[in-house]
């Protein structure tokens, strides 16, 4: 009799665990889907070439300012080649200006100074100016820009 009861309760236990387990998995899957729904999709970033200058218009140690997504970008011709910097100061996001005479970038907000290589010369900026990857082709200077789609979601 006691054995029978034992058997019976073990069976109950197995059934309970199976059923509750299945139910938990179902609820878990449901929640997983809901969370996935809420998390933004991470897409692998892809890039394309973007023309910023022609070599013929770029004397050595001169910078050219263009605008990319509303933010200034500087193309600098150095002796060694071309560098392209974001014009956003790495300190607190003000726009740096190119000082032709001194051959340097100057941020008016907190007197940050960057060299024509983008290196911090003085002032508070914590790191050099952000750089774009440069691609040279024939007479052309391209940078690598992230692919973006038109629309409100990007």
């Amino acid at each position: 009799m006691a054995q029978n009861e034992n058997k019976q309760s073990r069976r109950d236990f197995i059934r309970n665990t199976t059923v509750v387990g299945a139910l938990i998995i179902a609820i878990g899957t449901f929640l997983r889907h809901a969370i996935v729904y809420l998390l933004p999709k991470k897409k692998k970033k892809t890039y394309h070439k973007y023309l910023v200058a022609k070599k013929t218009e770029m004397p050595v140690n001169k910078a050219k300012k263009i605008t990319l997504s509303g933010k200034p970008v500087y193309v600098v011709r150095l002796n060694e080649g071309y560098k392209v910097f974001s014009g956003v100061c790495t300190h607190l996001g003000c726009i740096v200006r190119w000082e032709e005479q001194k051959g340097r970038f100057y941020c008016p907000c907190h007197q940050g100074v960057f060299s024509k290589n983008g290196q911090v010369l003085s002032g508070p900026p914590p790191r050099p100016l952000d750089e774009f990857e440069v691609h040279l082709e024939q007479n052309l200077v391209f940078i690598k820009v992230e692919d973006k789609m038109e629309g409100p979601w990007t």
Partner: peptide, 15 residues
Amino acid sequence: ESVRHITEEIRMGFW
């Protein structure tokens, strides 16, 4: 456009 976005682009959105 946002309903389209939910349906076609958001993961599990159509569900």
